[in-house]
Design a protein around this nucleic acid. Sequence first.
DNA 1: TAAAATTTTTTATTCAATAAAAATTTATGC
DNA 2: GCATAAATTTTTATTGAATAAAAAATTTTA
Lengths: 204, 204
Amino acid sequence: MTTLRARQKEDRRNRIVSSAKTLFRKHGYEKTTIEGIAEAAGVSGVTVHNYYGTKAGVLLALVIESDKQLIERLEDSLSRDEDDLIELTIQFARHILDHAIANLDKEIWRQVIAAVTTSAGTQLTKAYFKLDQQLAFVLVRRIEALQAAGKIPESVNAVHLGKALFHLENARFIQFISSDDCTQKDIEERLRNDLTALFAVRAA
Amino acid sequence: MTTLRARQKEDRRNRIVSSAKTLFRKHGYEKTTIEGIAEAAGVSGVTVHNYYGTKAGVLLALVIESDKQLIERLEDSLSRDEDDLIELTIQFARHILDHAIANLDKEIWRQVIAAVTTSAGTQLTKAYFKLDQQLAFVLVRRIEALQAAGKIPESVNAVHLGKALFHLENARFIQFISSDDCTQKDIEERLRNDLTALFAVRAA
DNA sequence: TAAAATTTTTTATTCAATAAAAATTTATGC
DNA sequence: GCATAAATTTTTATTGAATAAAAAATTTTA
């Protein structure tokens, strides 16, 4: 049974997050004030704080929602007949970058990264890392498929490999958002260089 | 010719940074106020802002100084007869983690990462990334040495490999500081897993 | 429907950040 | 060597994030 209070609360959360997204996209992160978000959502500024703790908390909540959608779609949008691990990883990165810039611009993504690191241990950060984990496992499952197809040695630990590739992708993602000049193409090239070099270490 | 003004300015910079380091270590980042730093340094709060822009800017300045020392020493402290790339990289990571926790605690390193990402493009951030670059090249030179010794194929691009390994190490460093529970041992193990999996992709 | 419980709002405070005016100190020309 | 010009710091004031406590409003329940 959902009480009236629970429904009202849920409603306020939705209004706050959706107002925030509009304002962040319209005016950027810095110029958007908590008071502004509150007004657009029809609550008081303190209520926004009570709900999300900080302005960065509101941003994180909004990113978590959009990342859930990304994960839902990613599994399907990754081409199923790519049998080269390098190209697969680059495709994976491409989907993530596409999704990121479709939702928020670089300036705001920088705030996301900052928020995630400073507010380590909070509920929202845990939720964020859980989604990261799920993203990594999309790669893990593809690696297992490649192993089943004989494209990657069975001796390789798919979980370890997937996580390592995800970390690398993530490092390049952060590099992407950290500079306004860095293009998606730059990132793909760097990622390709990374993987080519790493995979060649033990090549015969 | 160094004018009196230039010397005074340099002096104030030193006092601000050194007061800040003391206070950050003593009371943590949040509880240290700009006004407190200013008082300890014998200047006004606005002067601290004029010099470093933000509280995070002061922190960054202080980290850059200490990272310069790290780089100076790192080249020598890395064992010269380690011929396994995995162990070399782990050793590299160990030195960086050791240096990090010897200087500031995790809470403050989180603020450093946040500051670097949010204030992308500023002078201090550029200086920070330049040092990162130098760190990566310590690895690159070791890789070249391993190639010369026939331990790694000459076909591998040492610069690409060094940078990729550095990114991986950096990702694990951020993971280290992001959780109070994560030990250095955990990080070494994860890094070993990363590299073992990556290097085994093309293994015969 | 009235009392109790919960939640939001009001009010107030601290601190970061920024801007403009005022004051101080250093540098320079006579 | 002193008066004036230039540069730099400090004072003062304002906005906004974050937090806490009291007051007000609304929902729940008895």
